[in-house]
Computed example of a mutant assay.
Amino acid sequence: MNLYRAELRRLVKRRFVRYLVLAGLLVLAAVAAGTFLTNQKLDAAAYAEAERTAEREYQLSITWTEQWRAECERSKTSGGADAGQFPPDCASITPPPRESFLAEHYLPATFEFRDQFPATLHTFSSLLTLVFFVVGASFVGAEWTSGGMMNLLLWRPRRLQVLFTKLAALLTGTIAVTVPAVGVWTAAHWVTAVLRGDPDGMTGGAWQSFALSESRVLVLVAAAAAVGFGLAAIGRHTALALGGVLAFLVLGQSALGFLAELVDARYVEAWLIPTYWIAWMDGAVELSDWRACPPGGAECVPSTLELTWLHTGGLIAVTVLVVLGVAAWMIRRRDVT
């Protein structure tokens, strides 16, 4: 029997994997539905209603101001104990100008595809990265815990071949779910923009930029699955991958941030994983160093550091190679017991 097909079948048949992936996709569907329901197309009726709301708010501010001024005058006349909470001259209590109540401030939310869709990819990538990290960890971790891995290695004693065939099946499943999912995610938000927002402004360059962002999402999700797989293979238990990453994100990042502050690092954010995640998703992030600026609010142009998706890509590649390399080394040197 072909080992790759057997591992792919094993992945698909695992109930935990199916339920976890289904739960993740349902959450994404709920988010997309919520975006659709909470946005509205801006037509003439919406602008007219916003104008009426602005006028209503302006009239309310006039009424409130008059009441407050009358209370001020009564307090000043009677010499009440609360006179100190009013200005010395009650006539200075005036309502804001009508220009402060613009109709644009009262328009309902509308989904502008070109400006708002990239932010939705952050939600998409965060959820699927977490889902497939857990899937990758459980795929090999459960095999070691149940003894299935030991039985498989007795039948197919080529350890590295077994390990990397499992990884290939995992990545195949990850890509098979992520690619159509990101396609449906894009289509759902495009429909939202057409029916309840603004789809204008999309050029060939904008679509190409979105396609590159979605390809980076795919790489990120696949890398998370590979790292989860590798960590669980090293510890031969799913809990090691989950606990190790949790400890790194909570304790390790806190320690790195504290160390950066302690040594007075120029760009503290460059020590933190979320900065690289933003650079990966958005293409680049610019960090500023304000330490050289004099105190007292004097005008100053801080030095900057730009981190791009290439920096994050290098970090991802090194992490994946190191984790999988250690996993391969461990499975070669350790006896199957």
Rank of each mutant, 00 (worst) to 15 (best):
F210T: 06
V131Y: 01
F36S: 04
A239S: 11
P88H: 02
S146L: 06
A206M: 10
C300K: 03
D264A: 10
G141Y: 07
L154P: 01
G148D: 03
R291F: 01
V301Y: 12
L212Y: 03
L262H: 11
R159N: 07
K13L: 14
A206E: 14
T186V: 12
G183F: 14
E306N: 07
A23V: 09
Q116A: 13
Q253R: 10
S213V: 06
Y106N: 09
E306A: 10
Q67N: 13
P95N: 05
A279H: 01
R156A: 14
D264P: 01
L25W: 06
G313W: 02
G197I: 08
V322Y: 04
W271S: 06
G204K: 07
R9S: 10
N2I: 07
W68T: 14
V191M: 13
D335Q: 12
R18A: 14
S75H: 05
P87H: 09
L315R: 07
L60E: 12
T337R: 14
V227L: 08
F117R: 06
F36Y: 15
T186R: 15
G296M: 03
S78Q: 09
V12Y: 10
Q161M: 11
A247C: 10
L25F: 09
A232D: 11
A181I: 08
N151K: 12
G79E: 03
T63V: 14
G34Q: 09
F113L: 15
F124P: 01
G173P: 06
V227H: 06
V21I: 10
F16D: 05
E104T: 15
P95G: 04
G136R: 07
N39Q: 09
V131E: 04
R9N: 09
A83E: 06
W277C: 07
T35Q: 14
